[in-house]
């Protein structure tokens, strides 16, 4: 699949934003809603990431001016649900923020609700991809697990950094580490599974000619490019993919998790956790690029010339 910058930005940023909202919202349940600098920084960053991500996603649309229509089909469409949930989450999170400002007790309810909605939103985002039978690498429960892990991992790492900068990091780095690890473990397993998995659809099943022999594209329908090839025909060389996986997991997983531990141990926690968050996000950009670039769409079975 074509790794469109807007979609990479959307999933990474909105994931982090909603993860951060969850990190800001859940503690309200036990009365630990953010206040002061943490409040301001927390909500500004969370809204910026979540809203920025959502806006980025509209860059991908042919008709962004009609984007509001996308809220209509929540009964059937994960994309629509994602939109509805995102707006609802932002609304509740906004109300939550206001209630904190106003010192309203309802914050204790709004916070956890915003947190849960955030996670459901991220789940919905992940389901946009996971629901597609056409993409074997996506069509797995590991997709929502990874998305949730990464959203929480990045959100909580940011939260940890903010906690460290505005007060005390306490167990936040460990929480960050755990979620980040969940994300990467899910991702690694998805990579492995994807590598092992025989494609669901092949030129033989695509054409129904498998009973006659091995099938290979001889001539494409057009010698020129087309929308499908541009959108779905993107391929990344196996060698490059492997290098990028190591890079992504190193920069976005291994190093941040080390930093989390060191920060937890008390060494320059604000600085190291900020660095951890930045590296994690950078790693996720690569991870997300691979998420698209490595995904083989079923319809490419119709364009497979290599098949012997």
């Amino acid at each position: 699949m074509h790794p469109a910058a807007s979609i990479i930005a959307f999933t990474v940023a909105s994931g982090a934003g909603f993860g951060l909202i969850a990190a800001l919202g859940l503690p309200a349940a036990w009365g630990a809603a953010p206040t002061g600098a943490l409040f301001w920084w927390g909500f500004v960053v969370a809204f910026a990431l979540a809203i920025g991500g959502l806006l980025a996603s509209t860059l991908h649309l042919g008709h962004p001016e009609r984007a509001v229509r996308a809220f209509s089909q929540w009964r059937t469409s994960w994309l629509s649900r994602e939109g509805v949930l995102a707006v609802a989450t932002l609304a509740v999170a906004g109300a939550y923020a206001l209630s904190i400002l106003g010192g309203l007790p309802v914050a204790r309810i709004l916070g956890p609700v915003a947190a849960v909605l955030s996670l459901v939103t991220v789940f919905a985002t992940s389901m946009i991809y996971a629901q597609l039978r056409t993409v074997d690498r996506w069509h797995t429960p590991l997709t929502p697990v990874a998305f949730l892990g990464f959203a929480l991992g990045s959100g909580v790492t940011i939260a940890a950094a903010l906690h460290a900068a505005t007060g005390e990091a306490r167990l936040w780095p460990i929480a960050a580490l755990v979620f980040t690890a969940i994300g990467w473990i899910a991702r690694r397993r998805a990579w492995n599974a994807g590598d092992r998995r025989a494609p669901t659809s092949t030129p033989e099943t695509a054409t129904g000619l498998g009973h006659l022999g091995r099938v290979r594209l001889f001539e494409a329908p057009h010698t020129g490019p087309n929308y499908l090839l541009k959108e779905m025909g993107f391929v990344v060389a196996r060698r490059h993919a492997e290098k990028l996986r190591i890079l992504a997991a190193g920069v976005g997983g291994f190093v941040p998790m080390i930093l989390d531990i060191v920060a937890w141990a008390g060494v320059a926690p604000a600085l190291l956790l900020s660095l951890s968050a930045i590296l994690l996000l950078a790693g996720l950009v690569v991870e997300r690029w691979l998420f698209f670039a490595e995904a083989r769409h079923a319809q490419m079975a119709f364009y497979d010339r290599s098949h012997t």
């Binding site: 000619l209 022999g213 099938v215 594209l217 494409a220």
Partner: peptide, 10 residues
Amino acid sequence: RVHTFEVTPD
């Protein structure tokens, strides 16, 4: 669109 496939029997 019209593709052309090559089918190679055993």
